[in-house]
């Protein structure tokens, strides 16, 4: 086996490997403790933290679809106070690289969240949730998205990257990326869930309490690869994190080849709580088998002309 250097750069911050958990799919991180070592992952992205506590949407909150799930949890969580008091300190104490996802309902809320997270010790990066399906406007409109990123960037210390997480179903994901980068984003996370709906076979009524929800899982993987590919093609210097339907080490590699510097695992954690750790090992094997020795060398490699080796 060829030795592989899995380390990667997340907008200037070095991660030991490119595999993170996805926002909202690993709760506070602590729930995964029996099944993996959070410090051995590239990073742990928290659920999107809101200013006030949120009870979330009424159930049912999740239904199974072909190779995916449709969900609408409504960002249930303890709010920034509870998060900073217990959840973040746990991640820091476990030496996990904590990427804090934030979701505000106004510019003022985003600014306050950024300030409080930015002032807390142990934060590796901030991820700005611009794409939750319930909040259609912000993530799809380049102007709104850039205003949010602007206020967040202002309040987060320089050394901590701000990543903008975008909705995948937009007129042009490249245009939104360009706008948020101009507003100060150090990278983009592609992508959020896709709006979808299901009807219950017994009640013949909408299956989710929130009626529509976000589609995720392997069903959306090809969509994520396409988003990453387009952005890396147009803006090769922008740091991209790929997320959507990563199930195996090869799925992770695919996103790297398309241009992602790191990947996130979401829905597969519901299926298999140890999957992020397994995917790190599988990615290493995928690279080693192909005599590829560094993750840094494969980022965007699929864009190179055929026949060009290194």
């Amino acid at each position: 086996m060829t030795a592989v250097d899995l380390s990667t750069s997340l907008a200037g911050v070095t991660l030991p490997n490119p595999v993170m958990t996805a926002a909202g799919c690993a709760a506070a991180g602590r729930e995964l403790e029996p099944f993996l070592d959070v410090a051995a992952l590239g990073g742990v992205v928290t659920r999107s933290v809101t200013l006030d506590p949120r009870a979330g949407w009424p159930p049912p909150r999740m239904v199974e679809t072909a190779s995916g799930v449709l969900s609408g949890t409504g960002l249930q969580g303890p709010g920034i106070g509870g998060f900073l008091a217990t959840e973040l300190p746990w991640l820091v104490q476990r030496q996990a690289r904590a990427v804090v996802s934030i979701a505000g309902e106004s510019l003022a809320e985003f600014a306050e969240l950024a300030r409080r997270v930015g002032n807390s010790p142990g934060v590796t990066a901030v991820e700005v949730n611009l794409g939750w399906p319930e909040d259609a406007a912000t993530g799809r409109d380049p102007y709104q998205a850039s205003k949010v990123v602007n206020v967040v960037r202002r309040d987060v210390p320089r050394g901590i990257p701000v990543l903008a997480k975008l909705a995948p179903v937009v007129h042009s994901v490249v245009d939104v990326t360009r706008a948020v980068v101009k507003a100060g984003a150090d990278g983009v996370v592609l992508a959020h869930t896709v709006p979808g709906m299901a009807i219950d076979r017994r009640t013949l009524r909408p299956a989710l309490g929130g009626v529509t929800g976000g589609l995720s899982g392997p069903a959306v993987h090809a969509l994520a690869v396409r988003c990453v590919w387009e952005v890396h093609q147009a803006l090769p210097d922008v740091c991209v994190v790929g997320v959507g339907g990563v199930r195996t080490g090869y799925d992770a590699l695919e996103l790297l080849l398309a241009g992602a510097s790191a990947v996130q695992v979401g829905t597969m954690i519901f299926h298999d709580p140890s999957s992020p750790a397994r995917i790190v090992a599988e990615l290493e094997a995928e690279l080693s088998q192909r005599n590829l020795t560094r993750v840094a060398d494969v980022v965007g490699r699929a864009h190179r002309p055929e026949g060009e080796l290194s």
């Binding site: 729930e31 979330g56 159930p59 969900s71 949890t73």
Partner: peptide, 13 residues
């Protein structure tokens, strides 16, 4: 219904 059983999906509330 418990989609994950491990506390990570928030769907069984």
């Amino acid at each position: 219904d418990m989609p994950c059983g491990t506390g990570v999906c928030q769907a069984c509330v």
